[in-house]
Design a protein around this nucleic acid. Structure first.
Lengths: 219, 219, 219, 219
DNA sequence: GATGAATGAGCATTCATTCAT
DNA sequence: AATGAATGAATGCTCATTCAT
């Protein structure tokens, strides 16, 4: 069910200095992180309790604190986990690969995919976003996630403009930043109003924005 | 400094049945609500404490509970307060009233105005948005706020299309929903990255989307 | 059984700013302080637990923290309490009032009296003495207690020298400081070895020191 | 820096039955004991943590418990260590060896020496003294230390009386017990008030007490 | 000998809420 | 209308100790 992501020995910030890490230890950390992720998604950071994490992971509260000395450390681990999940997960490809606008459509489809298949990740992300407003460390992590996303979008936008698929005067940086904002905004609106929000029709509008559209009969 | 908004005697959900409402009581409720609003904006719902509200309002904690029997009641009152603030507040008008696109530009300018002048309202709104994911009552309130906003946008979009200022094939409902999402997304991105996020350039893109734009040389 | 000491309304450091003090509140504070005093004397600061204080005082742990926001506050209150006890308590007078050396003898008798009748006060004092080595606030309180004691001794030493009861060349300040050290040292030695330590015979030596003594047959 | 004291294989209470003692094991025990000593002196028994001892000694907490099965065992080892330190350490001799009163003066000078050069030993001793009030095993150790000290003093006091250097009617046992109390009391007073306490002038008084002194013009 | 992992019991402190006055 | 007092139920975190490897 859960991701089999296990941070490599040397890079994870979750590692405690002085600890020699064993496979078992990494597995425990991972299990605790995933339980924490679910609890944050379900009840928000407001109701997030280390005791509940320990309980659901089947370990003593002291064991949790053995791996994550403080609640903050555990939350940071969830940020890392989420960051990896978002970077890794991708909607199964459905469109034609050579079709113009493929990448943009994949992007939009991906947001719908995440929303329907991994709503917990979205909610947890938003919880951490709120916390990032007061916690510089988390803010940096989230900015890093956005920067990666932005870069990825820019790359295919530049290509799209060059191929004539996207509007010729499109500035890749601005457009990518706008697309991210648009997607995030849509996702949020869909969350409070899952039934009424016309997200697919808005996605069509996003394409029009990027392709350039002068209305029916134009040109 | 604070809004002089005072909910009318018969409509406020903060009112407790059986209480005889006096001017003094309403003032107390209002003062407590405003203090609560600031505390939610500053520390988030996670660190929001009724004792701190009472302390800053200069009343006993028991007095707070006299007016707001539970913490939830107080939070609901903040939702109402915010709802009124957003409905009332408007950026001072700077553009020409008869200029095409005036309304859309006012909308975008207004989001920047709120962001710079009333960041607390934005943060508090986002806090309550997160809570709305788990609290149906708050969800309804926020949906109501969005519905009002949506309706307002739709109105001037219909007019804009009729006047030929906006793209002829624009569906007002979808475009309004998209505009709200776009604005909310931009505001959030600006919040985590106040220095780097090119919000003004993105606003230009929003106009292009709504007006219809085929790139330089088109038409 | 317990002292009926109740700190006057305006002077006690145990008072919390913002609290209007009632007779009931003062009584609670006093009761908690006395329970704390006994527990410190019995188990030392090392085993001193606020929960145990609350339990023995018959109140909820939260009630204890209502009166003493932190453990430190409670300990400080015990310091004050002890300070008052030592200043107030006095051995019942047994010697002749007009006899020379009366005051010194009363002093020594008093130390024996405290040791036998109020051993808890002595132990608690020593516990706080140890803490004073790391806590400047407590250090100041204990210094104040010593200063009062020193002043009291100096007064009657000056008189004793003037009356020819004490050695003519006795410096009251130095002698008083020495007497305090001597008494404290004796008390401590008596505590670890209650049966073997010849405290009364040593008290005789203290008198000889202060009176001046050249050995049998001298002068 | 540290003492090279290493308790002989058969006598140490720190030794656990069933352990084969090796040079390495003794070194480990010694290192842990010294770290423990410093920590007790610095933070008191109240803040004394076995984990901190292990950490500073560079070993795992389980390793510490291999050598000292319980915290009490480690503390007892510190008592032994201190006992050895006090018995061994001596102020460098400065006075004339044949001068009368040499020994008493050496005693007093030694207390000042320990106070200025080894304040940690004094503080740790006092911490253990407090514990001895509740721990019979430690009480016995400390009594043993006092008994050795007492015996040493008695020896030279008897000689001093015989030589006419000390007061003829001085009872060596009582005087030695008094001297120890006086020295301990002075040291404690000097500790809470290092600047103000006139310890050297009091030492002069101690000599007068022991020598016998009827004031200027006497004899 | 040594250590990573694990834990039971506890600890000071917090917090929304209640109630007599 | 207002408040001082009180509390049950946590809450994050600690610590000496144990044990399999």
């Amino acid at each position: 069910m859960e991701s089999d992501y296990c941070p490599p020995g040397g890079a994870s910030a979750a590692k405690q200095p002085g600890h020699t890490h064993t496979a078992h230890g990494d597995a425990q950390r991972q299990a605790l992180t995933e339980v924490a992720f679910h609890l944050i998604a379900q009840g928000g950071l407001e109701r997030f309790r280390t005791r509940e994490v320990a309980k659901r992971a089947g370990v003593n509260i002291a064991t949790l604190h053995y791996y994550f000395p403080s609640k903050e450390d555990l939350i940071r681990s969830v940020v890392e986990y989420l960051s990896h999940e978002f970077a890794t997960r991708q909607a199964p490809f459905t469109g034609a690969a050579d079709e113009p606008l493929t990448e943009v459509r994949r992007e939009l489809a991906d947001s719908l995919f995440q929303l329907s298949e991994y709503p917990e990740s979205i909610v947890a992300f938003l919880e951490l976003f709120m916390r990032s407003l007061r916690d510089p460390a988390i803010r940096e992590s989230l900015r890093g996630m956005d920067a990666d996303w932005q870069e990825h979008i820019e790359t295919y936008m530049v290509a799209g403009v060059r191929q004539g698929v996207l509007r010729a005067d499109l500035n890749a940086e601005v457009a990518a930043a706008g697309l991210i904002a648009f997607i995030k905004g849509c996702v949020m609106q869909k969350m409070i109003d899952p039934d009424g929000y016309p997200i697919e029709r808005i996605h069509v509008e996003i394409e029009r924005w990027l392709v350039g559209y002068a209305g029916p009969g134009a040109r």
